[in-house]
Design a protein around this nucleic acid. Structure first.
Lengths: 364, 364
DNA sequence: CCAAAACCTGGAAGCGCTCCCAACCGCTAT
DNA sequence: ATAGCGGTTGGGAGCGCTTCCAGGTTTTGG
């Protein structure tokens, strides 16, 4: 360039020309629209943002220009000037390896995405895959000027990210019951009580040796459901047989192996901490030649679509997962738009769906 | 305010003070860092962006200040100035109602998210839920200054969004084979050939009446796999029996009902267009008292984790779904960073995984 | 030892928008 | 006629960053 200043200048001019041409074709700015409509930048901005105090005919005229040019405000510029990005983040933790195994997360994500669409927010997805991701996640999520708020699936014990986000003061809603009962908004079902109901149902049907397959012990959801199981037994004066409490990991395979471990202890009914595990467990039962529910009855948790498919159809606690997502977004947006309020706790309703696997129809 | 100008002024002052205090605590700007480090804004910017041409001791000093203050550049400001957002969008279409039924999409999403993490891009997720979403999606995705590029799952026939995005000139990679063979980059497996191989495998095992359960006919993936099925039969001089070609919809239930329709026509083997459908179909077979693979053999497509679980374990075409996601991101970033190049087509390898459901071990 | 080249640094002009403020308009009420 | 009042409008100062450019400093080679 230095050697050919004239040439460099020409190149520069050409580039300018191309850029400018590009701008005219598709990258119009507020200023351009203003010029075309014969008003000022401010007025166009008011029209775009539906402010009152614009004369009706002016508003029409500007809207027409916007229509005909296909003008769209520049997202980054708007974010910078307004300090508001209209984006929320969804963070799903690492040990949700079940992300693609258990339909729970896709379903949740769908609800969240749906609500974001409705409210015209953009959803960013942060899936933590590796250990390194986990270390870099906080700066990424909390980066200034990126997100207006974050949804965090977190019922892990000792979740550092949750702590960091709480301290960072970014609007936050946690999905699931956080382990240390901090000053956060969260949304969950009453897992303990739901499990209580499920197990009580089995007791009422007359089963004597009721086992449970729990989730990973590092999540409150597992703990809570196990607690509900124990409470239900104790309330009816039953003893707790530790050999009937086995650990799964919320996967089909986990349920399968857990059941294999439980079988020698002769359960006559099982409360599984998730439908996916129930399915695995029933497979294990079937393989030994025993029948569900005649020999071993089952109650699951979630009410996934696939719970209704196999024979016998699964009796299960229905969680409104999709509504979960919707509601979580609504709470978050409320916090974003109306400022920090006392933390909300929303507990959503569950419902026992009685089908075949619990043997209810057979026993009465 | 007008009535109490003095008060208004004081409020203003207070607000200024609070804002400024907030800034000092957590919302530092480049300028602040520059001041603290005794250099100019430009120099700090260079350090942050790893530009060369900064003296080593200066770089160190600035980095220290950044470390100790926890400074983070403002995402929106950076995007505005650099015309680069470091965000990519993933758009999943509406008729992927199977999003939460078929683990394919979660798995794909995971791969994509993983790659985004690796390259320090932020992923935005656009799930199209309703008809209205579909209408509003294009402006949302193409909004200026929001995304650097988009990944679109699109093998739907007549996908308008694909057309619009192609015309918009935003860097784009399509996941799946687009129906009208446009000038786009896309990534897919060779569905036709893969199906050909799967069906040839059944033929080789000696089955005479081989049926197929197809996906929805509005997606190229269904068409391609069906075509492979037909080609394989024709190549071996078999007749095509239309009653053995039934339509599913990529869901378990769809496979189940499809199989019920096919059963009266006495197939002795079935190639299912997806593992999920194969599972449903095998359930239908089991219910009639027939056995897999003794009475009817099965080959699926996808190699989902759950394909290995039930007895008999499913013989299937393995697709590298996760790698799909990774690769798609890599192509997209290449387009983003190196400008428009001739469209890339990447066809990924599949692999026939022989297990029990095809009866291979039994027949030889 | 000096000129040229290479390297470093700060200033300033944006990126495209929001929003405050002052000015202006056409009325009504005095 | 004129002050006063909403409603409406344009100008301008940012938002926090990147990047070009010019000037200053150091290094290099003859």
């Amino acid at each position: 360039m230095g050697a050919l200043p004239g040439f460099g200048w020409r190149i520069g001019y050409l580039v300018w020309f191309l850029l400018d041409w590009g701008r005219l074709v598709s990258d119009l700015t507020l200023e351009d629209i203003a010029k075309k409509a014969g008003v000022s930048r401010s007025t166009v901005s008011r029209v775009v943002n539906d402010h009152p105090n614009v004369r009706e005919d002016v508003r029409e005229r500007v809207k027409e220009v916007i229509q005909s040019t296909g003008y769209q405000p520049h997202a980054a510029a708007r974010s910078l000037a307004s300090q508001h990005s209209w984006m929320v983040g969804l963070v799903l933790p690492r040990n949700v390896s079940s992300f693609f195994t258990d339909p729970y997360f896709p379903r949740l994500t769908q609800g969240i995405a749906q609500a974001c669409n409705q409210h015209n927010y953009t959803l960013s997805l942060f899936l933590i895959g590796t250990k390194e991701d986990e270390e870099k996640i906080y700066p990424r999520v909390s980066r200034k000027g990126l997100l207006d708020g974050v949804l965090l699936q977190s019922d892990q014990i000792g979740d550092q990210l949750a702590d960091q986000l709480i301290r960072s003061n970014i609007p936050l809603v946690i999905i699931g019951r956080p382990f240390s009962n901090k000053n956060v908004s969260y949304i969950d079902v009453d897992n303990t009580n739901s499990a209580f109901i499920a197990v009580s149902h089995l007791i009422r049907l007359g089963y004597k040796r009721i086992g449970t397959i729990t989730g990973v012990p590092t999540r409150t959801v597992s703990l809570d459901r196990q607690e509900g199981y124990i409470k239900a037994l104790i309330e009816r004066g039953r003893d707790i047989d530790e050999s009937l409490i086995v650990e799964g990991d919320f996967t089909e395979a986990g349920g399968y192996y857990a059941m294999q471990r439980m079988l020698p202890h002769k359960p006559d009914a099982v409360f599984a901490g998730s439908d996916t595990m129930a399915l695995g467990a029933m497979r294990a039962v079937r393989e030994t030649g025993l029948r569900v529910p005649e020999d071993i009855a089952f109650v699951g948790f979630d009410d996934l679509p696939l719970a209704t498919l196999p024979e016998p159809r699964l009796t299960t606690m229905r969680q409104p997962v999709y509504q979960f997502g919707i509601k979580a977004v609504e709470i978050l947006l409320d916090v974003i738009e109306n400022g920090i309020t006392p933390p909300r706790r929303v507990i959503m309703e569950t419902e026992l769906i009685i089908r075949d696997s619990c043997g209810a129809s057979r026993r009465r």
